[in-house]
Amino acid sequence: MRFLTWLVTTAVSLATAAWLIEGISFTGATSGRAEIEDKILPLLLVSLILGVVTSLVKPILTLLSFPLIIVTLGLFLVVINAAMLKLTAVLADAVDLGFRVEGFWSAVFGAVIITVVTYLVDGLIGEDRR
């Protein structure tokens, strides 16, 4: 159940970022029921890719950039999160999921939105973490 909650939460945050940021998008229909049908499976798969990338690559990158994180008082973590989002887009493009992140600033703002929305949705769901 926890995995499913995490997957849906990440999918909601990715969908929000794609909706709010012009440089983040999913290919497919652009309105109505066809949009939902075209994008729901790619959205869930991209959420899964983002989770794997965040679990495997981010800790290594965070450890290697620890001095920069200290010097920037933690702000470099936003750049690392943006890099994880961009890497997710590259991997999703490699398997033809139709997820695009164009440009550094789109990745940065997308990472911030994903972080905030994930926090808010987790708070709304209120899953018991025991």
Rank of each mutant, 00 (worst) to 15 (best):
Met1Ser: 13
Met1Arg: 11
Arg2Ser: 09
Phe3Lys: 10
Phe3Met: 10
Leu4Glu: 05
Thr5Asp: 03
Trp6Ala: 13
Leu7Met: 14
Val8Pro: 00
Val8Thr: 13
Thr9Arg: 10
Thr9Gln: 14
Thr10Asp: 11
Ala11Glu: 04
Ala11Asn: 04
Val12Ser: 03
Ser13Glu: 02
Ser13Ile: 01
Ser13Trp: 04
Leu14His: 03
Ala15Lys: 07
Ala15Thr: 04
Thr16His: 05
Thr16Tyr: 05
Thr16Lys: 03
Ala17Glu: 08
Ala18Gln: 04
Ala18Asn: 04
Ile21Arg: 03
Glu22Asn: 08
Glu22His: 09
Gly23Phe: 03
Ile24Met: 12
Ile24Tyr: 09
Ser25Leu: 05
Ser25Val: 05
Ser25Cys: 01
Phe26Asn: 08
Thr27Gly: 15
Thr30Leu: 10
Thr30Arg: 12
Ser31Pro: 01
Gly32Pro: 05
Arg33Thr: 14
Arg33Glu: 14
Arg33Gly: 14
Ala34Gly: 13
Ala34Met: 11
Ile36Tyr: 14
Ile36Asp: 05
Glu37Cys: 06
Asp38Leu: 11
Lys39Gly: 04
Leu41Pro: 00
Leu41Ser: 08
Pro42Asn: 07
Pro42Gln: 10
Leu43Lys: 05
Leu44Val: 09
Leu44Ala: 12
Leu45Ser: 04
Leu45Trp: 07
Ser47Lys: 09
Ser47Trp: 09
Leu48Arg: 11
Leu48Asn: 07
Leu48Phe: 15
Ile49Lys: 14
Leu50Cys: 06
Leu50Arg: 12
Leu50Trp: 12
Leu50Glu: 04
Gly51Ile: 10
Leu56Asp: 02
Leu56Lys: 04
Leu56Asn: 02
Val57Met: 10
Lys58Arg: 11
Lys58Gln: 10
Pro59Gln: 07
Ile60Arg: 06
Ile60Pro: 00
Leu61Lys: 01
Thr62Trp: 02
Ser65Phe: 13
Ser65Asp: 00
Ser65Ala: 10
Pro67Cys: 12
Leu68Asp: 01
Ile69Leu: 11
Ile70Gln: 09
Val71Lys: 13
Thr72Trp: 07
Thr72His: 04
Leu73Asn: 02
Leu75Met: 13
Leu75His: 02
Leu77Ala: 03
Val78Pro: 00
Val78Asp: 02
Val79Ala: 15
Val79Tyr: 03
Val79Asn: 00
Ile80Gly: 02
Ala82Asp: 00
Ala83Phe: 13
Met84Val: 06
Met84Phe: 07
Leu85Asn: 08
Lys86Tyr: 15
Leu87Ile: 13
Leu87Asn: 00
Leu87Trp: 02
Thr88Asp: 07
Ala89Ser: 15
Ala89Arg: 08
Val90Cys: 04
Val90Met: 14
Ala92Val: 09
Ala94Asp: 11
Ala94Phe: 13
Val95His: 06
Asp96Ile: 04
Asp96Cys: 02
Leu97Gly: 04
Phe99Arg: 11
Phe99Thr: 08
Val101Arg: 10
Val101Asp: 01
Val101Met: 06
Glu102Val: 15
Glu102His: 12
Gly103Arg: 06
Trp105Ala: 05
Trp105Cys: 01
Ser106Asp: 03
Ser106Lys: 07
Val108Phe: 09
Val108Thr: 08
Phe109Tyr: 14
Gly110Ile: 11
Gly110Pro: 06
Gly110Trp: 09
Ala111Pro: 00
Ala111Phe: 00
Ile113Arg: 02
Ile114Met: 15
Ile114His: 06
Thr118Glu: 06
Tyr119His: 15
Gly123Ala: 11
Gly123Val: 08
Leu124Asn: 07
Ile125Asn: 05
Glu127Ser: 07
Glu127Phe: 10
Arg129Ala: 07
Arg129His: 08
Arg130Asn: 10
